[in-house]
Design a protein around this nucleic acid. Sequence first.
DNA 1: CCTGCTACCTGATGGC
DNA 2: TGCCATCAGGTAGCAG
Length: 279
Amino acid sequence: MPELPEVEAVARTLRPLVERRKIRCVHVLHAIATKPQNPSHVARLAEGQRIQSVQRKGKYLWLQLERGIVTLHFKLDGQLLWFSNAKKMFEVANQQESGVHVDVAFELDKGALGFADGRHFGRVLVYESEETCPAITRLGVDAISPDFTPAHFAKLLAASRRPLKEFLLDQTRVAGIGNIYSCESLWHAKLDPRRRANSVKPAEARRLHKAIVSVLGRALECCLHPPPDFRDPEWWFQGLEKILRVYDREDKQCRRCRHLIKRIAQGGRSTYFCAHCQK
DNA sequence: CCTGCTACCTGATGGC
DNA sequence: TGCCATCAGGTAGCAG
């Protein structure tokens, strides 16, 4: 459940389900999901505590407990599943005939939440607080927070020599942008992904900032209509493709200038862009 | 500190 | 059909 808009839509959908609920029991069904932490450590910290709120920064989601936090990261394929109670969950989870796979299950005083990731990249970890979670403290400014201003962004760009695409993927500068929306933002801003961040002129920096904010905003709207359905294991964000202008369109015509979209590798990932109108 | 590369996993897809 | 290579919306950890 990858980039910021998707995680934000998950956070908003999750809040009414779990806020003020008590965690009765944590079942770690696949220990890789808490690695490098011990499943019993995760369970011990979380069990018996009330969930006070659901927070998000960048692509990290966490449950704020009375003491401590439970962080969830979906990486590429992780997702949440909701069951009316723990019995229902165990009837369908990890059974051979049903494809519903759950790595970590939170049995609540009302309902049960499953963290699922068939690929086992996603993680469920616990910390004393968000300040003691290194992954969260390392994050830069969240891309849809009010602190993400054009001036702040310009300063960050000026301090980096990396190619724009790699700069945007660096979560320690701006948190929440991933491979799809970095390509999309650069296309909207008409900027070449290979340009060094510190070569960007003030007007171009403002354009890119505006593109990021509008791309993420439109994606979030798309992710909320319809909102995630955690009861359906097959559920996935609908209609994202209709807002994408350049991602996954190799050898197709640019929607602005009709030249062919190129795909190149940057930092080991695919970048899609139009070499004719992105300068 | 900065940057670039690999590993981590599983499943889908396409070429031969 | 089978086999192999490549790809996937992410990040931690390591070497230089």
